[in-house]
Design a binder for these strands. Structure first.
Length: 894
RNA sequence: GCGAAGGUGGCGGAAUUGGCAGACGCGCUGGCCUUAGGAGCCAGUGCCCUCGCGGCGUGCGGGUUCGAGUCCCGCCCUUCGCACCA
């Protein structure tokens, strides 16, 4: 059968099969069309993903296409997915992240880039430890099991990495260098120890960083943390607050992620002002509103403020002590409640307002936080809502010192709420009458002159608490010696190994007999090791550097290689890491830059946050979340109660995850990948539906049938297309082909609108099919179109593309084929259809030559010549005529 | 409360630079094929009507423009982040 008759048959494949094929073919054709029935056909004219996917699973790795040539970066592309914590298994929602990355990497490999796309495991940490405890396993065992399972899942998915560079943060080869990082920071004063009140999670039995307390509860387990005083290690990230803020400007990151980091750093400009207390003590406050100082009528200290003891007069002591004790007991969740009544007690002392001389009672109250600013405030009730509420609750004086511009003066007695707006200073001694835009500057100058204040900046960001009292993490490489004090473990003695003990449940290194006993590296006497491990965010704060030197036993990373390969060109991951991980990674990069290891300051040039995959979840009022199979007819299979349904991001706890193996077994990995990319814009949340996946499956079948039908044509190598010999339809198809090449190239390199890229491939497939069904298609064009179609879809559906490519006669992996180039000649058009608007309404379409389309005068003539247009103009006069070359013609009539 | 993102057919979404709204897919309707259909193929599918060379239409109300999903002003709703940060 010749190519042309095959082409025509393509439009009616069932006829084709009935006419000329054996029953066996028909059977397999039906199997192919209904993936549910399974079975292996001997001859595969039908699309059988199970067969072809297994055929190609190992070739890509063997081909070396995913092994970066790190020594010679050349035209490099460093792609990185946020490495996962190896949980039990990956669902299709996790898969989205990796499918995007795999497709983008395959595209860049085909484009000829030297692609570095490594993978590793964020293996230390509480989740692994807790999961292992539940199963009575050692966390190492649990972690290793999960890693090997996840790698098997990646293989089935067709997701490839440069596995020679695999790292796991729980391996001594890796955490040795995490400890090295700690020591470097310590040596340069960026790691320090202090006794601090910390959030302790009673369930997780560990200290949490401020950042891990979300909404007043433990981010991991939801328990309410209790305050505790412990000696803890901190990283001095606040030293970098300004640079972390400024560095955001030039990054190609989603705006909302930048904003979140900005808010987290929380830079506020203002002033520090010193207030004298009668007893000779001084209270220093931070304020963003120095211009309101004449309105400060009392002072408030945080209950934990160090001066409280000394300022408390004997008659107030009992009350103050009991308030402080209550505040210390109160959990974060209680203190964070914003809508509760203001509480506080008077210390008995008075401070003097340095500008007005007014006497100001000093109170303590828990609405002032010890961790922000100086832990003390001047209270200006007229112009700060919190101070206003406090003043009204305790009958303290209110003094108005600002008149908002363009508004009448306010009387303190009439106030029902504070007036925070900027304005003209009133009742402010020598500065009375200063307008809003000068108020801050003049007040600060005035304070400096009097020697009682200066401009200052405060940050919401706190130093990074890294100590954890748990087993499964990198031990802190510090020794305490009675004679030498705090002694860092010498670099050559690293790693400080996690003791190899049979795992017994929740514990820290302090619970392991003998672990702490050691010799002082300095004097050789007996000493004790630090028994804490590091926060896992330390592990992940530098892993992107390790990938360039993954097997290097002599250093954490080779600085030359790092400088050649980083910053990461494209970093893809979930928005849940928008603040902490990304901020810490940026901090460590800047610190290593300052220490001379790195030439660059920002680790991730471009960041892309993929959206989550949602799926229907069912909830029974009695039994909680139930699996879809327990939700027959919308009723609970256990109790028959009506179920609530809603869409949620996939999670085990909501029992709404889809296991990729179910989809891959039934439809193949390519269908899963295609659907994942097609169902919506990669940066938005999307809904997984069974119907949707069938659409992807149908498309791949159509594409497969089309290409298979054209194989004889492609193999006969009919030669290059001669543009001049194409007829109208041929030119149209070739135009479409090259527009699609351009479209895909732009999407992969630019905005990553992979859903529209897939849509473009669907359109192209349909147009090729239609063209092939014509009586006499140009075989050279058919060959060009089908070959390129296969190349274009290769990053998305690699198995199918590889199979078809080889059937076309390709010998090397499709990854080694150059990505198709755009032929500008194919994109030229001879004729174009332009809309004509009359009074803003679409009234006609005009077919004009390309040359006329670019000439406004010709367009005007053509429009006025058009019969349709003339009909609409009858009896009216043309007021205005606008011809936009190549776009449209707009006519205004009266 | 503050900040950000979003609101387009029955559904997911497209329209990338102010220029033909609804690409592509799902679903639905009709037809073909079939012993059968939770398979496949073909066609149709924004809404309304008086069925036309018609009217309306991108959360709501205004505005700019020859022309607005897109820009401006004012609201409403949804989601996310922060939230006593002085």
């Amino acid at each position: 059968m010749g190519p042309i008759s095959r082409l025509r048959n393509r439009a009616h494949p069932t006829h084709l099969l009935r006419d000329g094929r054996s029953d066996g073919h028909e059977q397999s054709a039906r199997r192919g069309a209904d993936p549910g029935r399974g079975g292996v056909a001997a001859v595969s004219e039908v699309y059988e993903p199970r067969v072809i996917e297994e055929r190609w699973r190992n070739v890509w790795r063997a081909s070396g296409a995913f092994s970066a040539d790190v020594e010679r970066p050349g035209k490099k592309f460093y792609y990185l997915n946020m490495f996962p914590y190896p949980s039990g298994y990956l669902h299709v929602g996790h898969g989205r992240n990796y499918v995007i990355g795999d497709s983008v990497s395959r595209f860049h490999i085909m484009r000829g880039y030297n692609v570095l796309n490594p993978m590793g495991w964020d293996a230390f940490g509480l989740p692994a430890e807790n999961a292992a405890i539940e199963r009575g396993m050692h966390p190492r065992e649990w972690t290793m099991k999960n890693i090997s399972h996840a790698k098997e899942q990646f293989r089935a998915w067709g997701i490839e990495y440069d596995w020679d560079r695999e790292v796991a943060t729980c391996e001594p080869d890796y955490y040795r260098w995490t400890q090295w990082l700690f020591l470097r920071l310590y040596q340069h004063g960026l790691a320090y120890k202090k006794r601090a009140s910390v959030n302790y999670c009673p369930d997780c039995e560990t200290v949490l960083a401020n950042e891990q307390v979300v909404g007043g509860v433990c981010e991991r387990c939801g328990a309410a943390p209790v305050p505790r005083n412990l000696d803890q290690w901190f990283f001095r990230i606040t030293d970098y607050a300004d640079r972390l803020l400024e560095g955001l400007a030039d990054l190609r990151w989603p705006e909302h992620v930048k904003k979140m980091q900005e808010n987290w750093i929380g830079r506020s400009e203002g002033a520090e002002i010193t207030f004298e207390v009668g007893s000779g003590h001084e209270i220093v406050v931070f304020t963003t509103r120095p211009d309101t100082i004449w309105g400060a009528t009392f002072m408030v200290l945080a209950p934990e403020h160090p001066l409280v003891d000394e300022l408390t007069t004997p008659d107030r002591r009992e009350e103050v002590e009991s308030y402080r004790a209550a505040a210390a007991r109160a959990s974060e969740i209680e203190r964070a409640a914003t809508d509760r009544e203001k509480t506080g007690v008077f210390t008995g002392s008075y401070a003097r307002n340095p500008v007005s001389g007014a006497e100001m009672p000093v109170w303590i109250a828990d609405y002032v936080l010890t961790t922000y600013g100086t832990g003390a405030i001047m209270a200006v009730p007229a112009h700060d809502q919190r101070d206003f509420e406090f003043a009204r609750a305790f009958g303290l004086p209110v003094r108005v010192v600002i008149r908002p511009e363009g508004e009448p003066e306010i009387s303190a007695d009439d106030l029902t709420e504070a007036v925070p707006a900027l304005g003209v200073m009133v009742d402010s001694g020598p500065l009375t009458g200063t307008p809003a835009h000068m108020a801050m500057g003049h007040t600060i100058a005035h304070l400096e002159e009097k020697g009682v204040g200066r401009a200052a900046v405060a940050y919401r960001l706190r130093d990074w608490l890294i100590s954890r009292q748990r087993y499964w993490g990198a031990p802190i490489p510090i020794v305490y010696c009675d004679r030498c004090g705090t002694v860092p473990v010498p670099e050559e003695d690293l790693p400080v190994l996690l003791p190899d003990v049979a795992y017994i449940g929740k514990m820290g290194l302090a619970d392991i007999p003998g672990y702490a006993d050691t010799d002082c590296p300095s004097c050789g006497g007996s000493a004790r090791r630090d028994t804490d491990t590091m926060d896992t965010f330390v592990d992940s704060s530098w892993y992107f550097l390790r990938f360039v030197s993954a097997r290097d036993g002599s250093q954490a990373f080779d600085p030359d290689r790092a400088n050649a390969w980083l910053p990461v060109d494209l970093y893809v991951g979930g928005v849940e890491h928008a603040i902490l991980h990304l901020l810490y990674a940026r901090f460590v990069t800047k610190a290593l830059h300052d220490l001379g290891y790195l030439a660059f300051e920002e680790p991730f040039e471009r960041l892309f946050s993929q959206g989550m995959v949602c799926h229907t979840a069912y909830r029974c009022p009695q039994h909680g979340w139930v699996y879809p199979k327990e939700a027959e007819g919308g009723r609970c299979s256990q109790c028959g109660a009506e179920l609530e349904t809603a869409y949620f991001s996939m999670s085990k706890s909501k029992r709404n995850v889809i296991d990729p193996s179910e989809i891959i077994d039934r439809y193949g990995a390519d269908t899963e990948r295609l659907y994942t990319l097609f169902m919506g814009p990669p940066d938005r949340d999307i809904e997984w539906t069974e119907e949707g996946i069938r659409g992807a499956w149908r498309f791949l079948n159509r594409l497969w049938q089309l290409v298979v039908a054209q194989l004889p044509c492609v193999r006969s190598a009919p030669g290059p297309v001669v543009q001049a010999e194409l007829d109208t339809e041929g030119r149209a198809l070739r135009h479409k082909l090259h527009a699609t090449i351009r479209k895909l190239t732009e999407e992969f390199e630019g905005r990553l609108g992979l859903n529209t890229a897939v849509a473009a491939l669907m359109e192209l497939t349909s147009e090729i099919s239609e063209y092939c069904a014509r009586p006499e298609p140009d075989l050279r064009l058919v060959a060009e179109a089908t070959r390129n179609l296969v190349l274009l879809i290769a990053p998305v559906t690699p198995f199918l593309a590889e199979e078809l490519w080889h059937r076309m006669g390709g010998s090397e992996t499709v990854l080694r084929c150059p990505w198709p180039g755009v032929d500008p000649e194919a994109l030229e058009v001879s004729e174009i259809e332009l809309p004509v608007q009359i009074n803003g309404k679409l009234r006609a379409r005009l077919r004009v030559s390309a040359s006329a389309a670019s000439d406004p005068a010709a367009l005007e003539r053509a429009a006025l010549d058009d019969a349709n247009v003339r009909g609409h103009l009858e009896g009216k006069s043309v007021v205005k005529l606008i011809a936009v070359p190549g776009k449209m013609i707009s006519i205004v009539v009266k």
